[in-house]
Design a protein around this nucleic acid. Structure first.
Lengths: 150, 150
DNA sequence: GTGTGTTTGCAATTTCATTGCGCCGGTCGC
DNA sequence: GCGACCGGCGCAATGAAATTGCAAACACAC
């Protein structure tokens, strides 16, 4: 993959909105023949520009009624402590995202749980079991006016 | 859609990892015939459990080298101020997510930009143009050890 | 046990993805 | 300027997959 041209960007725009559009429809949307279009998509996949495809699920329909972002600070900033924390987070299904950020705290987590009660359980059982944590603050999501990565 | 059974959950699990798996392969993975499997998928889509499909793009390959989360506080907490802010955010392509959260500040944003310079431009031109903001703090993402919603 | 409403698997049909091939436009070397 | 070369395109043929009708298997309720 040398460089993305306007057609490639168009394809990516469409696919990031509808990852399961048929190649035929996609080709029409970007004004290409199906074969040319498919070849571009394959090239984008091979180049890693398209990292994969996902179904977007509705949390509410799955019984997830509690979503929060957590700022988490560690006691020690050693490599070992960070790795231990990241391992724990990787294992916890409630944690959908974990970002290592700059600022007062080291991590920002996105946590999804069924309700406040199961969030509390997560807080106690998962977070409470980690000795390396110093500060935790919970920010409950009340709404997401924009969520393009949903 | 009455209720999700184990097969449905299995299907959702597979599709959220690989949204473009062929129905044939999916059917095999969940031990169903292709037709039965497809009908379940269609039902899940119709019920809104599957809200859609997306291609996951690699930000780095697209020239996005700067990702940050921003805590944003408003001066006034009026409905009008919130709506104005949300409208502005909806228009800004750099903002990929905007969550209305509890805590010291009202909003948490995820912003993606090409580099620090273009982030600064966003900060000045977009955020600087909003009179209703009181506090902004930027948390640069250094890494994302877990990002299931990517 | 029988009726009712679902869900399944099979098989036929249609639609789609995929690939080989020749064509066109642009580029480079001479 | 001219011809060989390269990259990308569309067309058409091929094979694979999605989709649907239908009858059997199943699950319950009565």
């Amino acid at each position: 993959m040398t460089k993305l041209d306007e057609k490639d960007r168009q394809i990516l725009r469409v696919l990031s909105r509808d990852g399961r559009i048929s190649n035929l429809d996609l080709a029409e949307k970007v004004s290409l023949s199906p074969s040319a279009c498919l070849r571009r998509v394959q090239a984008l996949e091979a180049a890693g520009v398209i990292a994969g495809y996902r179904a977007v699920l509705d949390p509410a329909k799955l019984g997830v009624g509690f979503i929060a972002y957590l700022s988490v600070g560690l006691k020690e900033h050693t490599k070992a402590a960070q790795e231990a924390f990241e391992r724990a987070v990787a294992r916890a299904p409630e944690v959908r995202e974990c970002h290592n950020i700059t600022g007062n705290v080291e991590y920002l987590l996105r946590v999804e749980a069924a309700d406040l009660a199961s969030y509390k359980a997560f807080h106690t059982d998962v977070l409470g079991a980690l000795p390396q944590l110093s500060t935790i603050s919970t920010h409950v999501v009340m709404a997401s006016p924009k969520d393009e990565r949903a």
